[in-house]
Nucleic acid binder design. Structure first.
Lengths: 131, 131
DNA sequence: CATACTAGTTCCCTCCATGTAACCAAGGCT
DNA sequence: AGCCTTGGTTACATGGAGGGAACTAGTATG
């Protein structure tokens, strides 16, 4: 019966936020969004080069983002093929919180590194002491 | 040589943002942060119940968050043990963009569902047409 | 004829995130 | 003595994320 309790998550918002984060919260989706927000419109291989993502993952990520209504896919029926991607209105609205997160990330990366380093040192000292 | 090109990611910010997202961008970290931001201070098992997370993952996630300087761990040496967690200053500053993302998520969940549904319908129609 | 180009897709493989279950320590309650 | 409690850790299993390489289509170019 402690089982049923673990299912009824007491923080209902957490569950829903979890749902959305599972969809659009993965690394590649966020980076694609950021890139499109910065450059406006990009072709498949431009995104690939920008992000250092594999063809497979980019294709998959773009299809999901298109499906979720965050990016537009513009197909030009020429040879060799040309496909352009840009943000939908909802995609643009998603940029605001994402960019906020990006800025926080850039601003605090060094702080995190420092915290991590001092934590590791403290742990090592503790190991030495207990040895 | 197209290899070396793929390594030199033309969008340098993307690489750094990628780094941070890899660290604090996972589902559980975000949810722990949100929970602590909402409740202030929580014990291990309170977090566990709130989030519906497994002991193993919670333990791991909390240790990483502590290591990254986002969460304080307050250990009370009593029996049975009592350990409390709350946000550091940096953890609190992380809440702002995260909450923004959470609000966007809650607000747009239904829109995403709608986009997804119409995408799937369109795809199915196309499949029927091509068949 | 062969090769290159763009945008994918598909197969295969690896590694990691995550869950489950068992175990532990040290004391309290009965 | 034995079971409960909290906060973990460890061993084991597994699904999914993600990369790499090969394949495709259709035309232009050498």
């Amino acid at each position: 019966m402690s089982e049923s309790e673990s299912v009824s998550q007491q923080c209902p918002d957490c569950k829903r936020i979890n749902e959305v984060l599972t969809r659009v919260g993965d690394r590649w989706s966020v980076l694609v969004i950021i890139s499109l927000s910065e450059y406006g419109t990009l072709r498949f291989n431009e995104l690939k080069r920008n992000l250092g993502i594999s063809q497979r993952m980019l294709s998959r990520t773009l299809r999901e983002l298109e499906r979720d209504g965050l990016v537009n896919r513009i197909y030009h029926p020429i040879i060799p093929p040309k496909v352009e991607y840009n943000l939908t209105v909802m995609g643009e609205s998603f940029c605001e919180p994402v960019n906020a997160l990006g800025h926080w990330a850039l601003k605090n990366l060094s702080r995190i590194d420092a915290a991590r380093e001092s934590f590791d040192i403290a742990k090592e000292m503790q190991n030495v002491a207990s040895a």
